[in-house]
Amino acid sequence: MLDVWNGLAAAFWLVVRLDPDLIEITLRSLQVTLTALVIASLIALPLAALLAVRRFRWRRAVIAVLNALMGLPPVVVGLVVYILLSRSGPFGVFGLLFTPTAMIIAQVIIIVPLIASIAHQSLRELWTDYHDLLISLNVTQRQKMQTLLWDARRALLTAALAGFGRAIGEVGAIMIVGGNIDHVTRVLTTAIALETGRGDFALALGLGFVLIALAVTVNLVIHGLGRTEREGRW
């Protein structure tokens, strides 16, 4: 119990003092995860729309693989990305290992299947609703996808939030490919792991509370945006 209170106190002081290290780590967490989220959404949402409207030979297989990949163990993703980016790997020449870019790559791989699967569910449902009308109106494949993505945007926001939640709290993969280097690749989750290992539970807990607060805030802000828009339009 004492640890929890110490943790709260530590977190409180870290925030109140605007601890430069804490701010740096938090901003890096946000930067890595939000970048990964944007990239992953740009890949996953059109993919989900395509899977919803287009019948091609491997559609079912792709969907099954996506669903399976949702449960991909992050540590394994980290390992694979590590091997690919390491000096002797195929992408070694770019020197990306132990940079925030490597962490972004790992997170994108982890959340694309998650976002695509959730998005596909709701787009599929919408497509059954819209099918007759859109076919009758002779829409092109592209217009079909645009219509679905636009009209399902609130459900897609939820999909993106799920991706954000998974990415911001992820530690296994980014620890491996980022290396948790102070002032370079240290983020909230890897810092927590480090402080826990060192036995500094108070600081670890403090960082943990900041992480939770961050996740909740981002969720609230995005939901808030969605709501304002809904009231404006509907």
Partner: peptide, 27 residues
């Protein structure tokens, strides 16, 4: 392109009335 169809069960886009009616033109 010169035909339109009004279905027995109307399909409503998840938009407001104005944008529903404007949709075919925008297409």
């Amino acid at each position: 392109a010169a035909q339109a169809f009004v279905f027995q069960r109307p399909v409503m886009l998840r938009r407001n009335v104005r944008d529903n009616i404007a949709y075919p033109l925008q297409l």
